[in-house]
């Protein structure tokens, strides 16, 4: 794998001590996450085209981030990468802890049925837990890759943006815990 030139990275005065290692790890991690998203996209197309498209978009975006990391990424680019991956992490947590109205049912017993002529809507019940996706090995692997990727991207940031970003991510985590505590999640 070609190594990004340290001087291409946007550094503060001291610069990241392990910029190459962070960037290399970032390339690997975003590659893993991106490939997993692309791998599972076909099954999500079977649920709904919009869901499948989202997975393709996420996968391609993460692979593109890997390419950008190889080529060298400025602070703004790193922040976009952090925001996008943090967004994916948030969506993952929501999809596993709350019934999202725009997600199709996932319970094993759920069957799609043909439309009923004259019906005002779909008559098939949707059980509350059925739009909460189960946790699986592949998606948990993807999540861990994204969390580690976030750490690598934050590590590549200059000092001030790094501190602000780390605080923002911590706040996001605390928000999730509070949301669980008050029953919004889970």
């Amino acid at each position: 794998m070609p190594m990004p030139a340290p001087e291409k990275l946007d550094q503060d005065a001291s610069g990241p001590a392990h910029a190459v290692e962070y960037a290399t790890a970032g390339v690997v991690l975003t590659g893993v996450a991106g490939l997993i998203h692309l791998w599972v996209a076909p099954e999500h197309f079977q649920e709904a085209w919009v869901v499948g498209s989202f997975f393709v978009l996420a996968g391609v975006g993460q692979l593109a981030l890997g390419v950008a990391l190889v080529r060298g990424l400025g602070t703004r680019g790193l922040l976009v990468g952090v925001a996008a991956n943090a967004g994916l992490v948030c969506l993952y947590v929501l999809s596993r802890t709350a019934a999202l109205p725009f997600l199709p049912a996932h319970d094993e017993g759920h069957h799609e049925h043909l439309p009923v002529a004259g019906a005002a809507g779909n008559g098939v019940p949707i059980f509350p837990r059925s739009s909460i996706e189960p946790v699986g090995l592949l998606d948990m692997t993807c999540l861990l890759a994204e969390l580690a990727l976030l750490a690598m991207l934050v590590a590549l940031l200059p000092t001030n943006p790094r501190r602000v970003t780390a605080n923002a991510l911590m706040a996001l985590g605390l928000l999730a815990v509070v949301a669980r505590a008050v029953g919004v999640l889970g």
Partner: peptide
Amino acid sequence: MSVLGGAA
């Protein structure tokens, strides 16, 4: 960041 990671 482990706060986010742990929650996620």
